[in-house]
Simulated assay, not measured.
Amino acid sequence: MAFETLSIDELIKSRRSVKKFKQDDVSIDEIVELLEVAKWAPNHKMTEPWRFLLYSGEGKEKFIQAYCGSQALKDGSLPDKAVKKSEYFRSIPIHLVVVMPEDPRQKTWDEDYGAVSALIQNFQLAAWARGIGMIWRTNDWIYNPVFREAIGVKPGEKVVATLMIGYAEHVPEAKPRTTIREKLEIISE
């Protein structure tokens, strides 16, 4: 598939959540370029409510140790599932944590969350156009104070996503989508 030649419609329809990655490195400069594109998301009052923590190379171990700390049992050991997950995390070229401030005003919080989500979608599409895949995760451990503190998420901030990023080893097939006509109510009078 020649990603660069896809129309925006084709790009949106072809994008997939990738879980299996090649071991090829992804350039941090390229990730920064992609974020520079993604920042053009709709953003009410130009608050730019995003912050990023990028883990690559040896730095991934800090992310993995934060995850392991959040999963540790009372005796300090890890459940088998957490051991497997940490090995999987080591195989992923880049982890990008996207954080936003949690404004106490509901309207501002909603607008900020919408802006950050739009930025993430822009980032996914721009990356997909370059052949870079990812999966947007919001697992329960992102709420664990041990994980949050270990990676430097401050009080009053929300982890919107942990993005696992790399070149796809496997691109999943498309899952069916419901026709919009079944979800659309047209009020014309």
Score class of each variant (00 low, 15 high):
Lys22Met: 07
Asp25Leu: 10
Val26Ser: 01
Val26Leu: 12
Ile28Val: 15
Asp29Gln: 14
Glu30Ser: 05
Val32Trp: 04
Glu33Thr: 06
Glu33Pro: 00
Glu36Tyr: 03
Glu36Asp: 13
Ala38Ile: 00
Ala38Val: 00
Asn43Leu: 11
His44Leu: 10
Met46Asn: 15
Met46Ile: 13
Thr47Met: 15
Pro49Val: 15
Trp50Gln: 15
Arg51Val: 12
Ser56Tyr: 14
Ser56Glu: 14
Ser56Met: 09
Gly57Glu: 13
Gly59Tyr: 03
Gly59Val: 07
Glu61Gly: 01
Ile64Met: 05
Gln65Ile: 01
Ala66Trp: 08
Ala66Gln: 08
Ala66Met: 06
Tyr67Asn: 06
Tyr67Asp: 05
Gly69Pro: 03
Ser70Asp: 02
Lys74Pro: 02
Ser77Asn: 05
Ser77Gln: 08
Pro79Thr: 02
Pro79Asp: 08
Lys81Trp: 08
Ala82Gly: 10
Val83Glu: 13
Lys84Trp: 10
Lys84His: 11
Glu87Asn: 14
Tyr88Thr: 02
Tyr88Asn: 03
Ile92Glu: 07
Ile92Thr: 04
Leu96Glu: 00
Val97Lys: 04
Val98Cys: 11
Val99Leu: 06
Pro104Cys: 04
Glu111Asn: 12
Asp112His: 11
Tyr113Trp: 10
Gly114Gln: 07
Ala115Glu: 03
Val116Tyr: 13
Ile120Gly: 05
Ile120Arg: 07
Asn122Leu: 05
Ala129Trp: 01
Arg130His: 11
Ile132Gly: 02
Met134Val: 04
Ile135Pro: 07
Trp136Pro: 04
Arg137His: 07
Trp141Arg: 09
Ile142Arg: 08
Arg148Asp: 12
Arg148Pro: 09
